[in-house]
Amino acid sequence: MTSDAAAPPHQRAGVPVPRETPARRLSVLLSRAPRVRLGLLLTAPLFWLGLVYIAALAALLVTAFWTVDSFTGTVSIEWNLDNIVTVLTGAVYQAVTLRTVGVAILVTIIDIVIALPIAFYMAKVASPRMQRVLVILVLMPLWASYLVKAYAWRSVLSEGGLIDWMVTPFGGNTPGYGLHATVITLAYLWLPYVIMPIYAGLERVPDSLLEASGDLGAKTWRTLRSVVLPLLWPAIIAGSIFSFSLSLGDYITVNIVGGASQMLGNLVYTNVGAANNLPLAAAIALIPIAIMIVYLGLVRRTGALENL
């Protein structure tokens, strides 16, 4: 083996001599030039993401500075800050932005609080067999249509619906539709997206660390706080990116269970459709973009983006 390993490939025993085909030569060339290899790997994806997505985002940004001709209803290229000023100073936009961010934060907190114990049970307490069953149980609702689930909550919360039926004997009433119904439904919809990264994060925490912490005298809470939580932080943030971002842009759930409440998504939607004011819609859409960029920037260093 010693002399064999030092010999060039075609003299080693048992390794057939590669034929000198053009494909072979290309392969040799590529393995000597990692930069070229990297370039070939990245060309298609970057082309796609750059051309389709970044260009579209940039165009959106530019559109926000244009106006709609109030007479013909077409977008005209007339550079001004009107839309941005409208969005930043308009009382409606400020109120709706605050409401939307509030809903998104509340939904995220509810989801994390619910997801933590469940993910912990799945990853650290349940038997392997049980674990598999639980993962399926958590993932399966994702396949039921988003709309149907929102609609299911509409029916659960409706007058004469399930909750009404359950609480009426005790003199209660269904909470009905509104902002609270929106929060409940959104938290329900995004829960699996929060559980899964946290569960995956907990799976990566070795049991030996927990045992070591216990052996060193730490009580359960102390172990959770000083060992588990710091390791789990990126996974929690990864989950929060989903629930926060998904809530921030939602306009359909609020249509179904929100009563008359409006969120940022509704404003964007009506301005693209009914009001036919794409530049204003673009300006409104810059609000969630700005919020998400700040958020992603803040959490980037935690390594959360690798846990999505």
Partner: peptide, 13 residues
């Protein structure tokens, strides 16, 4: 990571 409505309106535009 960006809300769906942003992706939607950007691509629509």
């Amino acid at each position: 990571a960006l809300p769906g409505i942003v992706t939607g309106i950007a691509l629509n535009n």
